[in-house]
Design a binder for these strands. Structure first.
Length: 184
DNA sequence: ACCCGATAAGTGGTTACCTCA
DNA sequence: TCTGAGGTAACCACTTATCGG
């Protein structure tokens, strides 16, 4: 992004990686065949791709909906993150087949791959908005500066008006310079 | 020990498609 | 054949919870 507030004309350029949904996005009308039970909960922690970090968490008796287990946070390995990132660069959304293949490749559940892509899309969108916000702020500042310069220029012209009027023959009605010969 | 940012995962709403009465 | 209801799957926005620095 580049802003040139000092020039008389605005020179603003912005280069943001566009966030465009895949053509296979369901909201774009191209629905895919749903032959996979994406939301099937893996039976074991290994199925879910969980990696326990730190000490074993204690079991909370109040945590009934997790079977008395506290929620565990998966930590993706560098390799997993790298591969997910690579595929995200190629496509911001996955077909069920791609999701399945990626899950197998990364030894994660399809749900986890899906969640990662959802969160990644959200992060991408947030970053995009932050850049847009920054761009608009800079634009606003450049417009303020341009406005300030134009006001100074107008002030100078106003100050010149009586001088010009004394030299030139100016029509008091339309404020146009008239030919002195016409007045005769 | 506490705080905070990053992020995995949960929740609820919306939309599109499919099936079936 | 058309149609409306119900179910399902996928998405997004927002939130919560966890973990590491």
């Amino acid at each position: 992004m580049a802003v040139s507030p000092n020039s008389s004309s605005l020179e603003l350029t912005i280069s943001i990686q566009s966030f465009s949904p895949s053509p296979s996005h369901p909201l774009s009308g191209d629905h895919m065949v749903r032959d996979l039970d994406i939301n099937q909960t893996p039976k074991t922690e290994e199925d879910r791709g969980w990696i326990m970090i730190g000490t074993t968490p204690h079991i909370n008796e109040e945590d009934e909906n997790l079977g008395g287990r506290p929620r565990k946070k998966l930590r993706l390995t560098k390799e997993q993150s790298h591969l997910l990132e690579e595929s995200f660069i190629q496509n911001h959304t996955l077909t069920p087949k791609q999701k399945q293949e990626l899950a197998i490749l990364l030894k994660l559940s399809q749900r986890q791959v899906e969640v990662w892509f959802q969160n990644r899309r959200a992060r991408s969108k947030l970053k995009h908005r932050e850049m847009e916000c920054e761009y608009l702020k800079r634009w606003f500042e450049s417009l303020k500066e341009q406005n300030r310069r134009l006001q100074i220029e107008a002030e100078e012209l106003r100050a010149l008006k009586p001088v010009l009027a004394s030299v030139l023959s100016i029509c008091p009605l339309c404020e146009r310079v008239t030919n002195a010969a016409d007045n005769d």
